[in-house]
Nucleic acid binder design. Structure first.
Lengths: 253, 253
DNA sequence: GGGCACGTTGCAGTCGTTGCAACGGCGTTG
DNA sequence: CAACGCCGTTGCAACGACTGCAACGTGCCC
């Protein structure tokens, strides 16, 4: 979990508890009311009542035989609505499909959400060995190719603030040194694309290029998720070429 | 909104208010704190504090210049997690892509969530005029092709309970008469596929076939979203053939 | 059969949340 | 230019929802 660096919001234990509960259920898959209570550090009765309430609005689903809860589909509905504002997706999906057939690698589309990058869409590659990214996945900006692209397009003050905060180490190769990261960001800005070599997942890497709107703002990043074994220089050059060609086919506003 | 027919959950105004707030923001796109409060029927201060709290956990996003809120991407993340349990998607997507190239129509995958069917994945068609379904969209079982397939595979008692409840009329053609619907369900069960002719959207129709697991339970429905103008008998026959062929290529467990 | 874990419910105290009121900023109107 | 209205924001006191505790019932395992 990436630490937040926002101005202090009004504390509301109610909503935080609900969020924590859903987080727990999301992480564990199937959870009993007692497990949920234990995980939240509250009484069994409280955990049960909370789960029951969340079931009432469809945010949790209850299985009568196993007496366990999991996330409900109304959350899925709500989640997809969250993308309505952003939708570069319709346009991007077509380009992503072309990318996949040209490269065989998995293509993804990411947007920035505060201090994290979120993959809002992915298309699986066709190669036998391929990296996999789940749509909805989230990671710190410093750990993935798309995130470095976002950092390269952020105002200096925001970048400084980001570098000051905790830089989570997702893998041994994750860059957690601010000075090193600053150089990487500069490099990313200069050459126009970002990369990631085992910094989120030890076996996978990624490449990403910015999607700019008419005003030159970076609204999203288009990327490829590539097994490390295929991240040699000559192949990276080829893939970056494909990515850049793909963004040129994108008309954003 | 479809009415719920569950056993009475414990009332928890807290979670219901939060859900209502997110529903409002989801429906209106960009909402000011004052608007949100008005919509919820609470004081401005309450609306503002609620919005601020939700922003704190990333469920709402705040735009400083317009001072408005919209749904945050953490909801998207949570929503995609809700699908993890269900995932026929990985398998189905391949088959759906084949369906699209064979028919040119938009393909969709739906699962049942209580009294509603939810589209968990869609692939746009390639025809010039095509129907569009948003992933995450939800509708009453009686109003869409996939829903009728689910009804055809549900125990009689559950079907009776469903028919007793309110049957929302989404469009003039929506079937809201229980007796008629019962006949339609019987027909769907007999012939093995469901259809929808302008019952959700006046200009669109749909076709759907069940995806059965090893035990014969209907775990999902595979469908095509077809403009009404192309729902003539000969074309429907062809499309149903494609759908049935596609499900045979699906290995579920 | 006994023990254990869990679901479930009633009850009273706590504490979070609410509405009210007020202040300040900002754009609009007369 | 002043008055007005709208909205964001904060303090405060009262209300009420939520919590933990305790108890009961059930199903499962030793």
């Amino acid at each position: 979990m990436v630490h937040e660096r926002r101005n202090p919001p009004t504390r509301r234990p109610g909503v935080e508890r609900i969020a924590a509960a859903l987080e727990v259920v999301g992480a564990r898959g199937w959870v009993s009311a007692a497990d949920l209570a234990a995980e939240l550090g509250v009484d069994r009765s409280t955990g049960w009542r909370l789960a029951r309430s969340l079931e009432g609005i469809g945010w949790l689903q209850h299985d009568r035989v196993s007496r366990r809860y999991r996330l409900g589909l109304r959350l899925f509905e709500l989640g997809t609505r969250a993308l309505d504002g952003f939708d570069i997706r319709a346009e991007a999906r077509r380009v992503m499909a072309e990318l996949v057939s040209a490269t065989g690698e998995s293509a993804d589309l990411a947007v920035r959400d505060g201090d994290a990058a979120v993959f809002v869409d992915t298309i699986d590659g066709t190669n036998e060995v391929r990296a996999f990214t789940r749509s909805g996945q989230r990671a710190g900006l410093h750990a993935i190719a798309a995130g470095k692209v976002f950092l390269a397009h952020m105002p200096q003050v925001e970048v400084d603030a980001y570098l000051r905060g905790p830089l989570d180490a997702y893998a041994p190769a994750t860059i957690t040194d601010p000075a090193t990261l600053r150089d990487v960001i500069a490099l990313t800005r200069r050459r126009g694309w970002g990369d990631n070599r085992g910094e989120l997942n030890p076996e996978a890497g990624g490449l990403a290029v910015p999607i700019l709107d008419a005003g030159g703002a970076c609204v999203a990043a288009l990327g490829l998720n590539v097994p490390l074994m295929r991240m040699g220089d000559e192949n990276v050059t080829r893939l970056i070429g494909e990515l850049l060609a793909a963004t040129r086919r994108l008309t954003v506003n």
